[in-house]
Design a protein around this nucleic acid. Structure first.
Length: 460
RNA sequence: GGCGACGUAGCCAAGUGGUUAAGGCGGGAGUCUGCAAAACUCCUAUGCGGCGGUUCGAAUCCGCCCGUCGCCUCCA
C-alpha cells in the first residue's frame, strides 16, 4: 500500500510522490497573541502524526513551522497587557512550545519568524513589484490579482462578486477588491521597519511565501494549515509564490485540517469562545487530549465536548493496561500481529485516517489482554502494539496531575491502613475507606500486586 | 447573497458500489474477586437526515429538499 493524501488543490485523494529527500513540510504556525487553544492543538497534533507517518514509511522529513510574530492582534494584546509587542509575541511563543511539549508534539526543524525575516520579505516584495505583480500606493504595497490569472485555483473562488462579498467595500488605493497588502504603511505608535516604500510592516500573507522559499526552496511537497486559512491566506500565498518564482505548483499537496468548534461556532481567539490547552491539561493528562483529538478524521469538523474528553480518558486507561501487560510464553499470534500492523498502517496511509487506525489499536489491545489472560503472551503482538502507539505519539507513561501529587502521601497512608484492615478481614471498615475515598474522587483498585489508586477523571 | 463541507446506534466515530455497517464511551447480563475495580465473554443500528433516481445490487453515485457548520473580515 502506498500513501495517499487528499490534496485540496486537486479536490481528490492522490498518490503521494515526493520530489526528493527530505520531504519538505511547511505548517502554517500561529500568531502568538494568546495561549494556544484546542483548535491549535488539533492542527499541530495532526501535523505531528502526519510527520510520524511519513517517517515510518521511510521518508526523511524537513518540517518548518512559522510564527507570525507581528500583526494587529499582537499589538492590541500587548497594549492591553501594558507590554511591548515583541514581549507579547515572545510570551505566547513560549506558551506554544510549553503546550506542545506536553502534548508530545515533536519540534519542527526550523521556526522562522516575520521579524527575523525582514530583509528577505522586503526583497521578495521588491521582486514582485519588479515582475509587475505589485504596485505602490502612498507607502502601501498591494499585490495585483488581475495579473495572476490562476488566482482562485485552490479555493475555487473565481467570481469577483463572490470574492468581494456583500459587506466588503473597495478600499481606497486598491485597483481591484481582490488585491491584498504586501506591505502596510506604518501607523503612529506601532512597530515598523524601514523599506524602499517607507516605514511599515509586512502584510499578512507575504511572510509565508518568503519563509517557505528561504527554508524549503521554490516548491514544497506538503503545505498544512487550518481549513480556515484556505481563503484568502493560502490562495494569496500561491499567487505570491508562483508569481515570484514561476515554479508551479508552489505546494504539491495542500492539506487542510478541519476546524474545532464549540457547540455553536468555531473556536477562535476573536470570538472568545475558546478553551486553552492549559485549561484542559489542568484536568486531563496530555495523552487524553491527544487520543481525543485523533478520534476524528482530520478533515472533518469536530465539535469539542467535555464528555468526549472523559470517554478518551477511559479509553486511554484501557490502552495503558494493555501496554503494561507482561508475559513470557510465546504465542501463536505472529500472523495476527503482522495483519494488525498492516491494517493499522493502511489506515494511516489512506489520508492519515487516525480514527480508523484507532479501531485497530483498540482491537489489538484487546487481543493482547486476551493473550495474556489466557497465559499466552504475545511478544510480537506487544511489539506491533507499541509501534502503533508510537505512530500516534500517545504517551503511555502516566503523568499525574498536580492534585494527585499533592494528595499522594495522604492517599498512600489510607491505602496502607486499609491494606492492614483487609489483612485482618475487616471488610466493613476497609470498604468504608474505599467508598469514602471514591466520594472524594479517589478510585482504589485491588490487584494481585497490591492496591493502586488514581484520581477519577474530571475530578482533577 | 456567493462558494464549500458535513448529517451513520443514547453520545463520539470509521466505512465512498457487493459477505453478518469497524472501534470508543455509556448501558445490560455473566466469569473472576471477600465485595468492588480492572481484565475477559456475550448483548446493545433489518438500518446510515428526508424524498426520488441510476444499478442485478447504494450508507457509499446523481437530483431535489431539510438541518448544522465553515469561508467570503482577524483566525489553526
Amino acid at each position: 500500500m502506498a500513501l495517499r493524501i487528499w490534496n485540496t488543490l486537486a479536490g481528490e485523494k492522490q498518490l503521494f510522490e515526493s520530489r526528493g529527500d527530505p520531504v519538505g513540510m511547511y505548517v502554517c504556525g500561529m500568531t502568538p497573541k494568546f495561549r494556544p487553544h484546542l483548535g491549535h492543538a488539533r492542527l499541530y497534533v495532526v501535523a505531528d502524526v502526519i510527520r510520524r507517518t511519513l517517517e515510518y514509511l521511510g521518508y526523511g522529513v524537513k518540517h518548518v513551522q512559522n510564527f507570525t510574530d507581528i500583526d494587529d492582534k499582537i499589538i492590541e494584546r500587548a497594549r492591553s497587557e501594558g507590554i511591548r509587542p515583541d514581549e507579547a509575541s515572545r510570551k505566547y511563543t513560549d506558551a506554544y512550545f510549553e503546550a506542545m511539549a506536553r502534548l508530545g508534539v515533536r519540534p519542527a526543524h526550523e521556526y522562522p519568524t516575520v521579524t527575523g525575516s525582514m530583509p528577505s520579505i522586503i526583497a521578495y516584495i521588491q521582486g514582485l513589484i519588479d515582475r509587475g505583480y505589485g504596485y505602490v500606493v502612498d507607502g502601501d504595497v498591494y499585490f495585483e490579482v488581475a495579473r495572476f490569472p490562476e488566482y482562485g485555483k485552490l479555493s475555487g473562488r473565481t467570481d469577483e462578486e463572490g470574492l468581494v462579498g456583500a459587506r466588503k467595500e473597495l478600499e481606497p488605493g486598491k485597483r481591484d477588491p481582490r488585491d491584498f497588502a504586501l506591505w502596510k504603511r506604518a501607523r503612529p505608535g506601532e512597530p515598523s521597519w524601514p523599506s524602499p516604500w517607507g516605514e511599515g510592516r509586512p502584510g499578512w500573507h507575504i511572510e509565508c511565501s518568503t519563509m517557505v522559499r528561504d527554508t524549503l526552496g521554490d516548491q514544497v511537497d506538503l503545505h498544512l494549515g487550518g481549513r480556515d486559512l484556505l481563503f484568502p491566506h493560502h490562495e494569496n500565498e500561491i499567487a505570491q509564490s508562483e508569481a515570484f518564482t514561476g515554479c508551479v505548483p508552489f505546494a504539491r499537496y495542500w492539506v487542510h485540517i478541519g476546524v474545532l468548534q464549540t457547540e455553536r461556532a468555531k473556536m477562535s481567539h476573536s470570538l472568545l469562545n475558546f478553551t486553552t490547552v492549559d485549561e484542559v491539561l489542568d484536568r486531563f493528562e496530555p495523552a487524553v487530549l491527544r487520543l481525543y483529538l485523533l478520534g476524528t478524521h482530520y478533515r472533518a469538523p469536530m465539535v469539542f465536548s467535555e464528555d468526549g474528553l472523559r470517554g478518551a480518558d477511559r479509553g486511554l486507561r484501557a490502552l495503558r493496561a494493555a501496554y503494561a501487560q507482561e508475559g513470557d510464553v510465546v504465542a501463536q499470534l505472529e500472523g495476527r500481529a503482522a495483519d494488525a500492523l498492516r491494517e493499522f498502517t493502511a489506515y494511516l496511509e489512506d489520508d492519515f485516517n487516525t480514527a480508523g487506525a484507532l479501531g485497530i489499536l483498540f482491537d489489538t489491545a484487546h487481543e493482547l489482554n486476551r493473550a495474556v489472560t489466557g497465559e499466552e503472551a504475545a511478544p510480537r503482538l506487544r511489539g506491533v502494539f507499541r509501534t502503533m502507539i508510537d505512530l500516534l505519539g500517545l504517551p503511555m507513561g502516566e503523568e499525574r496531575p498536580a492534585a494527585a501529587v499533592a494528595a499522594a502521601p495522604f492517599v498512600e497512608l489510607l491505602v496502607e491502613t486499609r491494606t492492614a484492615l483487609r489483612d485482618e478481614r475487616q471488610w466493613v471498615l476497609a470498604d468504608r475507606v474505599r467508598d469514602r475515598l471514591r466520594d472524594l474522587g479517589v478510585v482504589l483498585e485491588d490487584t494481585p500486586n497490591g492496591t493502586v489508586w488514581r484520581l477519577d477523571e474530571g475530578a482533577r
